[in-house]
Design a protein around this nucleic acid. Structure first.
Lengths: 119, 119
DNA sequence: TCTACACTTCAACGATCATTGAAATGTAGG
DNA sequence: CCTACATTTCAATGATCGTTGAAGTGTAGA
């Protein structure tokens, strides 16, 4: 992920409704949610949601796929992963003062990590 | 870090000049840089830089301290750390698909992490 | 105290963003 | 083909953001 893409991703997450959309989609898991359900979950109009979803897609944070007459959105886990990597490595230069506490706070659910990697 | 603060931090990093400022400050290390040097490093006018620095401070990403007639800015490592934690845990729910690759990409410089933690 | 310096605050502007209702697109079923 | 439905695109609006020059604040030294 280059700086340009990271900028787009940060800007995308720096908006209340969009951050909620991402969180809702992560919570929903790999299957994601149809746009209608998302609109209700986030509490935003259909037109407005569509605008934000396009922004999130441009930023590489969500994926979509038509399914019957609705369109199902899901979080782009690899995009989120790359963003975290950018923040830790390219931006913070892997400084232990920054990265170690963040990783430690995660240890209960996400131990050492070995073959799970598939960047 | 609550959602409100995370939003401010993401929005702050979603701007080219501000992202560059943060990267320059991280690179500069714990001593940081005086505003003048930052302005030159980032290639932005003094007035404009001051605006962005205030935004970054509000977002909890930089700290400042007067030093003679200049003001020295430095990255707020704990703020950056909390943002990464938020992104991994609160936003992505610690999903291994997301977190493991990001952590793995860091392993050369930032191994397992134990007593280093000081959230 | 006077001047120079480093930076910030203020006021103004154009540009981009978020939101809305109305119209268009695409899909499914009768 | 026609209607109903889910979502997007379009056009328009007010709000916020990024940038600039001019003026202000605070610090250091002669």
């Amino acid at each position: 992920m280059d700086e340009r893409q990271a900028l787009a991703a940060f800007a995308a997450l720096g908006q209340e409704h969009r951050l909620r959309v991402v969180r809702a989609l992560v919570t929903a898991g790999p299957d994601g949610l149809p746009a209608g359900a998302l609109a209700e979950a986030v509490g935003v109009g259909a037109t407005n949601l569509s605008f934000h979803l396009k922004e999130l897609a441009r930023a590489g944070l969500v994926l979509s796929r038509r399914e019957g007459r609705s369109i199902r959105y899901r979080a782009d886990f690899s995009g989120l992963s790359e963003l975290i990597r950018f923040l830790m490595r390219d931006c913070c230069q892997g400084r232990p003062e920054v990265c170690a506490p963040a990783i430690a706070a995660l240890s209960p659910c996400c131990p050492p990590a070995e073959d799970t990697a598939r960047a």
